[in-house]
Each structure stands twice: as structure tokens, then as C-alpha cells.
Design a binder for these strands. Structure first.
Length: 421
RNA sequence: GGAUGGGUGGCAGAGUGGUCGAAUGCGGCGGUCUUGAAAACCGUUGUGGGGGCAACUUCACCGGGGGUUCGAAUCCCUCCCCAUCCGCCA
């Protein structure tokens, strides 16, 4: 959400953003509705003021004056009712449109219509040259008895996974590995539920537009969260934090659920795209300062890059273009790890700065030191690690000719010091 | 699943029809006192919107929505949420 005053004062910029980000919103219609709503509120305020002045006097008036004043007050109430009725349809309509207004992207954001126009910023590491025919992660898992895709599909349907033995240990080790990295940087480990109320999804911006991607539990009237970000954003909503409490740094751990409704047929085999997975989310709430938020953005990005380097995975950094970045994002970079079986880089991390766009929705505020002014926080997030997806490049990059998998040195302390899985 | 109780300001907690945006206490902030601190005392202290250069003024908000009434934190309806006890269970 943006400040309505900002929208009024920057109509052209907001319109351009709506276009660049491919948002279905008629800003002119919204602004004319804004004018109507504003005028109605103005009239209502005047009438209420008039009425309050009358009714507050009533207890002290003589009997005949009292009757006269009551009659007058009734007349005003009738007028108020008319305007209120009008407002009761227009205000919600306006509010809904406000939820669609996108955040203004950073100036250096590539303009583009979809992920095909994302820009590769840089590549780190060199894809390995194999002196044998590399297997894909699915086959590596099967041949080592590290997974049982067929049986689990029987029980749980497609896009489900199991990991067994060493692969299962690897999954947990990776989470501990990133947790240690993040706590060393001052992040607080936090495990959060995955079942969330609807408001939380509006708060992050996943709703109203992303309803198809989210599982719904009708009996509980709760949704299955696709990321810890949803709970973390709302944890402090409706609070006014003190500036001294900021930044809040969370390493949030949760099961994540995604219906993948828009990805039918894509990545059905293996670990890349499953309905339920585990994720450590890097999450920051900081003060409303773009330089400060950029600093944290770089920390989030660096941490993820360190992880990929420690795991010895070649990767590239992608600047997501306006059409691919999502309405709420000010900036979004993806990290993609080299995946030999597909001969391409596949997304493992997604790093975003939302500035105050989410905080406005979630009503996440703080009191500024010195001025005592109440401001909206800035929020940022990045993947810490998401499993099992990252196991695909991991297993494939580190496989040996005989079907074993080498463990990168930095991870060995988490794997009983072993060199191979 | 069964049975209760409850949602009021940063927190605790009064308030059952008007003078209530809301007593009181705690906390916070400012000050007096003190070498300093504590204690004590005095003052101050919600959010959002409108008007105004400002002083200030005004509207809304006591879980959400609706209703009764000239007037609602207070009465009625409805929804949501939370807590506790019992049962079941990781």
C-alpha cells in the first residue's frame, strides 16, 4: 500500500509503475473515487459537528426547547444517514483499489514484462565439467535409496517428497548451517506456525491477488502459509515499536505450503517444485530509511551468497524486472544455482526490499527517536535456505561418477565430519 | 468434542445512556530536590483524518459489522477473537 497523499501528488509516477508492473488497476477511476469519498467524509464531518453541538446541550435545556432541539437533531441525522449509505459502498470500493496500488520500484530496476526480461547481474563460480554423464538429482536419490518418490506419491499425491537416510540428514544439516550463520549475524531464530488468518496474507500483499496459490482450510478458516514472512510481518502489526527496538532480525523457520496452481506440468519430477517444504527465512524490520534498508538488503543478499559459496554451488544474481517482481517490491534479486541436469540456473533464493509497502498494510509502525513521530517500518526478506529445492543443485553438482555425493568442506561439521553422503 | 468467562489507552484496571477519549494505578517523558542515583513531589503522556502559517480547532475510534436512541464504551442483534476448566491427543 502507498500513502494516498503520495499517490495524489505523484499520479504520473504511479501510473507508470502500474503499467511497468502489469497491474490491473484504473488509477483515474481510483482517484475520482478518492475525491468522492473525501467530499463525503467532509460533509459528514460538518453534519456531525453540527449534530454534536445540538445533542450535547439537550440535557440542560428546558422542556420545550428540548423537544425543538431533538427535532432539529433528527433532521441532521437523516441527512447523515443518506451520506453514510453512499459512503458505505464507495469507501470499501476505494479501499480495495488501494490494495492493488504497487510499490514504486528502485530507479535501477529493469523494466520488463515477465521473467524473460530479468537481468543477470553477475555469475559466481564456474559450472563443473563432468568427465562422465551426470545424473539428475532424482536418479541420484533413487539409486542411493535416499528417497521414495513413487510410494510417497501413492500416499500424498504429486509434488510430494520424502528424503531418507543421509539425504534426510542433509536437509536438516542445511537448516542448522544457515541458522548458525544468521545467529552469528545477530538474527534471532524463530519458529512460526504455518496456519494463518486471512488478515496476515493481506498484510504481506499475498492477498487479494494471490488467492489461488494458497491452501485454505475451510473448517478452521485459516490458510496454509507459503512462507514464514507472512507470520513475521504480522507479528508486530498494530504495535508502535520504539525506534530502539529496531532493527528486528529474524531467522524464521517454518513448513511452507504452495498450491503451485499456476505451474501445472512444470518441474513435476523431483525436488524442485513441491507443495510442502521447509524454509528458513531471513527477515528484517528496520526504520524508514532507504539507505538503512539498502544496507540490510545487502546483508540478506550476502548471507545467501555466502551460503551458496560455502556449499560450492555456482550461481548467478538476477535483478528481477518490474513485470516479475511483484506489486509490493521496491527491489528484488533472485539467486539461481547451477543445475547440471537442466543445463541452467534455477532459483534458490529471492531477496526483496518492500520499503513501507507491507508495513502500511500490516500497520507496523515505530516511534522515531527525537521527533517522536510515528512512522511505518520498512520490511525486507530473503530466503535463508529452502529445502528440498536446494538439494537438486547440491546433489547434482557434487555427484561422483559412481553415484556418491561429496559434501563441501564447510558443511562437514554438520554431517558428522563425513566427506561423502 | 463438552462447559464457562472475557475483549476498554504502552500495561493493569474502573466505567451499564449525556458533562466520557474515558477514573485510578503502573510504566514513559519533562521538571524540583540530590555530589550522583533512588525515593518523594509537580507537570505531562493514545492513534488516524479534516481545517489552520500557527496557537488551536474539529471528526472518528473502547474487538468487527449492524440496530435502538435526540444522544451509545454503556442497551439489542450478529460475527470474530482470546482465555480457563473437563475430555481426547503429539
Amino acid at each position: 500500500m502507498l500513502d494516498i497523499k503520495f499517490i495524489r501528488d505523484n499520479v504520473d509516477l504511479v501510473k507508470k509503475t502500474i503499467q511497468d508492473k502489469n497491474i490491473d488497476l484504473d488509477l483515474d477511476a481510483m482517484l475520482s473515487l478518492d475525491k468522492e469519498v473525501f467530499a463525503l467524509n467532509q460533509k459528514l464531518q460538518d453534519l456531525r459537528e453540527e449534530k454534536n453541538a445540538l445533542t450535547s446541550k439537550i440535557p440542560t435545556l428546558s422542556e420545550d426547547l428540548k423537544q425543538e432541539t431533538i427535532a432539529k437533531s433528527k433532521e441532521i441525522s437523516d441527512k447523515i444517514k443518506i451520506y453514510e449509505t453512499e459512503l458505505s459502498t464507495k469507501q470499501p470500493e476505494f479501499n480495495e483499489m488501494m490494495l492493488l496500488v504497487p510499490n514504486i520500484p528502485a530507479k535501477d530496476t529493469p523494466i520488463g514484462k515477465d521473467d524473460s526480461e530479468n537481468v543477470i547481474l553477475r555469475r559466481e563460480g564456474t559450472p563443473r565439467k563432468f568427465d562422465f554423464e551426470p545424473r539428475d538429482h532424482y536418479d541420484i536419490l533413487e539409486m542411493n535409496d535416499w528417497a521414495d518418490f513413487k510410494r510417497v506419491a501413492k500416499v500424498c499425491g504429486s509434488r510430494s517428497y520424502t528424503l531418507k537416510g543421509a539425504a534426510s540428514r542433509l536437509e536438516i544439516a542445511l537448516h542448522m548451517f544457515i541458522m548458525d550463520k544468521l545467529t552469528a549475524k545477530g538474527f534471532t531464530m524463530i519458529t512460526v506456525p504455518s496456519m494463518v488468518k486471512e488478515e496476515a496474507l493481506y498484510g504481506t500483499g499475498h492477498f487479494p491477488t494471490g488467492k489461488d496459490d494458497v491452501y485454505y482450510l475451510p473448517k478452521e478458516n485459516l490458510y496454509l502459509s507459503g512462507t514464514a514472512e507472512i507470520v513475521l510481518t504480522s507479528l508486530h502489526s498494530d504495535e508502535i515499536l520504539d525506534e530502539s527496538q529496531l532493527p528486528i532480525l529474524y531467522a524464521g523457520y517454518s513448513p511452507c505450503f504452495r498450491s503451485e496452481a499456476g505451474s501445472a506440468g512444470k518441474d513435476v519430477r523431483g525436488l524442485i517444485r513441491v507443495h510442502q517444504f521447509m524454509k528458513v527465512e531471513q527477515y528484517v524490520i528496520c526504520k524508514a530509511d532507504i539507505a538503512e534498508s539498502e544496507k540490510w538488503y545487502n546483508t540478506l543478499l550476502e548471507t545467501a551468497e555466502e551460503l551458496l559459496k560455502d556449499l560450492e554451488l555456482p550461481y548467478q544474481v538476477i535483478a528481477c524486472c518490474t513485470g516479475d517482481m511483484g506489486a509490493g517490491k521496491y527491489k528484488m534479486y533472485d539467486l539461481e544455482a547451477w543445475t547440471p541436469s537442466q543445463n541452467k540456473y534455477r532459483e534458490t533464493h529471492s531477496c526483496s526490499n518492500l520499503t513501507d509497502w507491507q508495513a502500511r498494510r500490516a500497520n507496523l509502525r515505530y516511534r522515531e527517536n527525537g521527533t517522536n513521530k510515528v512512522k511505518y517500518c520498512y520490511t525486507l526478506n530473503n530466503t535463508g535456505i529452502a529445502t528440498p529445492r536446494i538439494l537438486a543443485p547440491f546433489l547434482e553438482n557434487h555427484q561422483t561418477k559412481d553415484g556418491k555425493v561429496r559434501i563441501p568442506e564447510k558443511l562437514r561439521p554438520y554431517m558428522n565430519g563425513k566427506e561423502f553422503l
